Deep mutational scan, measured.
Amino acid sequence: EPEARKIVEKLINNGLSPEDVKRWAEKNNNPEVKKAAEEYQKR
């Protein structure tokens, strides 16, 4: 999901860690963003 990846990169560029992004995604019920954050961590 390229859109989710863009969101993850934007949040990380704004100073969030991938863990923060995953928590944000869970709080906002956004499994695509959570998955993208996990993939981002593996890179």
Rank of each mutant, 00 (worst) to 15 (best):
V21D: 00
K42T: 09
E9G: 04
A4P: 08
N29Q: 08
K10T: 13
W24C: 00
E38V: 07
Q41M: 14
K10D: 13
R43F: 14
K27T: 09
A37Y: 05
N28M: 12
N30V: 10
S17N: 06
G15C: 07
A25D: 00
P18Q: 04
E26I: 09
I12G: 01
E1F: 12
E19R: 05
P31T: 08
P18M: 12
E3Y: 08
A37R: 02
L11P: 00
A25L: 03
A37L: 13
S17W: 03
I12Y: 04
N13A: 15
G15K: 03
E38R: 04
Q41C: 12
P18Y: 14
K27W: 10
K27H: 09
P31K: 07
P18C: 09
A4E: 02
R5C: 13
K35A: 11
V33I: 09
L11A: 04
E19K: 04
V21G: 00
I12S: 02
R23C: 10
G15M: 04
Q41L: 13
K42V: 09
A4G: 04
N14C: 14
E1S: 13
A25S: 03
K10H: 14
R23W: 07
K35F: 08
I12V: 07
A4T: 05
N30R: 15
N13S: 14
E38S: 05
V8H: 02
N14F: 14
L16Q: 04
R23G: 04
D20E: 13
K34N: 05
K6N: 09
E39I: 07
K35Y: 07
Y40G: 00
K27F: 10
R43W: 14
E3S: 12
R5A: 12
E3R: 10
K34E: 06
K34A: 14
K35V: 07
K27R: 12
P31G: 06
V8L: 13
E1I: 13
K35T: 07
E38F: 05
P31H: 09
K10I: 14
S17F: 03
K42G: 07
K6S: 12
E3H: 10
P31Q: 10
L16D: 02
K6Q: 13
P18G: 03
N14A: 15
E19I: 06
P18K: 03
N28C: 14
A37S: 03
W24I: 01
V8K: 01
N28L: 06
N13Q: 14
E38H: 05
Q41T: 08
R23F: 07
R5L: 13
N29D: 08
S17I: 02
I12L: 12
K34V: 13
E32Q: 12
K22Y: 11
A36I: 13
S17Y: 03
A36V: 12
V8N: 01
R43D: 09
A36N: 02
I7H: 03
N29V: 04
N28H: 13
E39M: 08
V8R: 01
R43S: 10
A25Q: 00
R5P: 05
P18V: 15
K6T: 11
